[in-house]
Nucleic acid binder design. Structure first.
Lengths: 195, 195
DNA sequence: ACCTGAACACCGTTCAAGT
DNA sequence: ACCTGAACACCGTTCAAGT
């Protein structure tokens, strides 16, 4: 928040932070590079010294978001923790990330056209996550169910909840829960379905 | 597609159709009222005789979309059809609607800010669907599972699949299926989870 | 190396004026 | 009743010029 060091120093960082903040409240399609530049105290052309285009800025945000999500989910499966429990917890963390970092989530899982093609590997971000999930869940599938099917079903379920929450289309109080009790929401669905 | 009758006749209809077509291919945030007017062969100010704003245009599209979806899902649960089977089928239809009418789906389930506040009842479109689902699924919950939980879990799952497909983030060929075999994808998850 | 200022081709929206 | 044309305040992007 030290605005003075931003202008000379790390304009790139300042732009990324401001963008994430704007997107969290107003959505990604309302983002304006010019407004961003104004907020950071710089001319509307200055951002182009750090990002080739608006799309490249968004791609950089998506990349950071996936890194953050990975560092949140990674430790869950580490060590000798109960795999069944870890699997449930990973879903809650996915939703928690979405709700607590909507500025990242909306870019990561918005329309692919926003980010794909502007940075390496973002196009396959979905399939990659799915493959990871599949390997993790495989040991739980002792009853003949396909690991890939279970991975897809649980990813879709958790992703659906996250999307509906972030878009303001689902509120925990519909289930008699506190407004910020998204973990409770996740428990509602895991109690119905997850292995 | 009779362009001559559009100009005098039903500009409103022409604008809605053109918008759905544009959104299907380019996404909702790339939609331009001026480009729409150009496509239909009319001045950029003409749409304002039929819609108060871009938001009202989008809200009208969302309303139409929910009507279409309802007429597709409604008959599934009618009559004495097997409820279990109907429940599975309704999920496939939700996904089919999304994939075959992405121009509608992207507006209906895009950021609420796009449509909420521009037309009656759109704000609660999500919760309404959930309540309907809950009533339909209740008779299936003979094992003590909460109908609301089952409704949420299955809605989220199916919605997640639809979102990932429409955003181009999930392709059926990841599962050895044909590129347009979204029904197969739905079967993959129902075989893992649905009651 | 990094930022500015003017410029270009676009937007959404408004409004007087035309038929 | 419905559409036009000019106008306003915005965009994203480019580029010569400044330090």
């Amino acid at each position: 928040m030290n605005l003075r060091t931003y202008h000379h120093g790390d304009l790139r960082r300042a732009l990324l932070d401001a963008a994430v903040r704007h997107i969290a409240t107003d959505g990604v399609d309302a983002l304006s590079l010019r407004a961003l530049a104004r907020d950071v105290g710089v001319t509307h052309a200055a951002p182009y010294r750090h990002f080739e285009s608006k799309g490249h800025l968004l791609a950089a945000i998506a990349e950071e978001g996936f890194q953050i999500l990975n560092t949140m989910v990674g430790p869950i499966f580490g060590g000798g923790a109960d795999l069944r429990q870890a699997f449930r917890e990973s879903g809650a963390i996915y939703v928690r990330f979405a709700v607590e970092h909507p500025g990242y989530f909306k870019v990561m899982y918005g329309p692919t056209r926003l980010t794909a093609g502007y940075a390496e590997g973002l196009d396959s971000a979905g399939p990659q996550e799915l493959a990871k999930y599949e390997m993790l869940v495989a040991p739980l599938c002792t009853d003949g169910r396909s690991p890939r099917g279970v991975a897809l079903a649980s990813w879709a379920m958790v992703h659906g909840i996250a999307m509906l929450l972030v878009d303001g289309r689902l509120r925990p109080d519909l289930f008699g829960l506190a407004d910020d009790d998204y973990t409770g929401l996740v428990k509602v669905i895991t109690d119905s379905y997850l292995p």
